[in-house]
Every structure is written in structure tokens, then in C-alpha cells.
Design a protein around this nucleic acid. Structure first.
Length: 291
DNA sequence: ATTAATCCCTGGAGGC
DNA sequence: TGCCTCCAGGGATTAA
């Protein structure tokens, strides 16, 4: 059997998780689970033996996504999976030896096997009844999906007024809008010409509207491009993400800003490496905008 | 109530 | 070549 890897890139954010969801949907929907092995118990947010036994016999009916969470809808339960930094799935044969960074193995009745791999072991999985996945603690606190239909600009404007901390910190929180991680947070702030350290409650209405638009557009564009691939990988269909060639500031420290030619700078915001153009993105001293 | 700090992990980078 | 130290980074948790 050909080994089919779904993922293999660093830092899965919404576009990468959505790309994985689409790959998994093609690869595993309809399969029935015969056996499960949890090799690193901490990955699973419950007793790992119970996790293993409860999954046996259930079939995968759908693969969904909410923010950066993958949700496998099963016969009775929902398996909620967050890849965090480096989690990825691979579909292979049951006979294929377990590799060093494989932490959860799902063997199917047809002889194939889904392997969860994660070098840093930051990823997490939970099991809940399948009609209750939206009430899972990690999911209830998520803001809206960043699409025109679900992400309202007036709500966004109101929500930002509740935070004095840097706008980038707020975007990384997933509470006001979900799906952005470190790469796309830097990209949307560059696109809307806002300094990552600008306090969220001091954004003008105009800036908020620009940011709202940038978030929707850039994430949609990155989904279309099948995400950003940092390291080379092949998924089930031999396709790579292509958005890396559109990155304007992330990982471009010292390179020329594509808008004005000023060298891109790197600073630290909320413990995260943060890239921006010091000419296009300037902190503006302002009083808090009225609530 | 909001926000900053800590923790989990490992491979890769840099120092010598 | 190899040993040691340092450190990124999403999100839950804890402290302030």
C-alpha cells in the first residue's frame, strides 16, 4: 500500500487543518475501527485504555473542522483532535512498522491503519458523544469562523474594545476570531498595515475594517492554496501546500518589504516570534476608542 | 475581569 | 566529532 501522509508541515493553522480535513475525508470516511493503540497516554485527555476500547467497532462517518480542531464523527462518539505544533496523520498498512514519533494508531478492519505522529507531543485528542462535540471545552470558547457569513465586522469592532493588550495577542487567542496562528497573524497585520503591538482597543474603525477584510481574504486564499508548506511533504494526492510563496513578512526577517523596500524586522510578542515592516506598520499613540 | 507567566516536548542551532 | 545549553511555540493552567 502507498503511504499517504496528510500534513507534514509545521504549525498547522486553519488553512493547513482544512487541507488535512479534506485529505482525511477522502481517505478514512467509511472505515471501521478494529483496534487502537495509544503509545503516549498524555496525548489523550482521558484514560488511554478506555479511549482505546471505546473506539473499537465504531466507523468514521464524517471529518469536520472547527477553528484548528479536527472532528471525526464516529458511529457513537466524536474524536476531537488538535494538532498544535507538529501533529499529522498518515494512512498506511497495518503491517507498516511504528515509527519513532507515532503516538496513536487506529487500525481499520480493511487492513489499513491511521497513524497520529507528533514530534513534540503537544497535540491532544478527546472523545465525547458525537452530538455533544460543540460543547467540548476547547471548542465552546472559540470565536467565529473567519468567513463572510460567520465573521461580523460590527461584532469584531466591539470585541476588540475589551482588550488593552497587543492586537497580535488577541488574534492568537482564538476568542474573537478563530483560525489564525503565528504565521497568518503576522500576514494579516502586515496586509492591513497595523503594528502587532498596537493595543487592540486603540484600533480605529477603519483599521478594524481593514483587518477584518484581511483575515477573511488571506485565510480563504491560503485554503485555496492548500496551506503553507514549510518542509516538503506529499499528501494523499501528491500535492503540496503552495501558500509559502505568498508570505510577505513571516520568516522574511531582513528581507525587503514588498510594499516599500524597508527591511522586515522580527520582535517578540506574547512569547511568539513576530515579523513586521517598521515603515508600513507603525504604532500610533491614541487614547482608547470609545466603547 | 484581564493579562502575564509557566508548562509541556524535542530537534536543531550555536558554543567550545 | 561530540557534548552541553538554549529555545521555539498553541493553548491549558496558574498566578498576579
Amino acid at each position: 500500500m502507498v503511504r499517504s501522509e496528510v500534513g507534514g508541515l509545521t504549525m498547522p493553522e486553519l488553512p493547513e487543518v482544512e487541507t488535512m480535513r479534506r485529505g482525511l475525508e477522502e481517505l478514512v470516511v467509511g472505515k471501521q475501527i478494529e483496534h487502537v493503540s495509544v503509545l503516549w497516554p498524555r496525548i489523550v485527555e482521558m484514560d488511554s485504555k478506555q479511549f482505546e476500547s471505546e473506539l473499537v467497532g465504531q466507523s468514521i462517518e464524517q471529518v469536520m473542522r472547527r477553528g484548528k480542531f479536527l472532528i471525526f464523527i464516529l458511529t457513537r462518539d466524536a474524536l476531537i483532535s488538535h494538532l498544535r505544533m507538529e501533529g499529522k496523520y498518515e494512512l498506511t498498512s497495518i503491517q507498516e512498522p511504528i515509527t519513532k514519533h507515532t503516538h496513536v494508531v487506529f487500525d481499520f478492519t480493511d487492513g489499513s491503519s491511521l497513524r497520529y505522529m507528533d514530534v513534540r507531543k503537544f497535540g491532544r485528542m478527546a472523545l465525547v458523544p458525537n452530538d455533544e462535540w460543540t460543547t467540548y471545552s476547547g471548542i465552546t470558547k472559540l470565536g467565529p469562523e473567519p468567513t463572510i457569513e460567520t465573521f461580523d465586522s460590527d461584532d469584531f469592532e466591539k470585541a476588540l474594545k475589551n482588550y488593552k493588550k497587543p492586537i497580535k495577542s488577541v488574534l492568537l487567542e482564538q476568542k474573537v476570531v478563530t483560525g489564525l496562528g503565528n504565521i497568518y497573524a503576522d500576514e494579516v497585520l502586515f496586509d492591513s498595515k497595523i503594528h502587532p503591538l498596537q493595543p487592540a482597543n486603540t484600533l480605529t474603525d477603519e483599521e478594524t475594517l481593514r483587518l477584518h477584510q484581511s483575515i477573511i481574504e488571506i485565510l480563504a486564499c491560503a485554503v485555496e492554496a492548500r496551506g503553507t508548506t514549510i518542509r516538503t511533504y506529499k499528501n494523499a494526492f501528491g500535492e503540496n501546500g503552495t501558500f509559502q510563496s505568498f508570505l510577505k513578512v513571516y520568516g522574511q526577517t531582513g528581507e525587503m518589504c514588498p510594499r516599500c523596500g524597508t527591511p522586515i524586522e522580527k520582535i517578540k510578542v506574547a512569547q511568539r516570534g513576530t515579523h513586521f515592516c517598521p515603515h508600513c506598520q507603525v504604532i500610533v499613540e491614541r487614547n482608547q476608542v470609545n466603547k
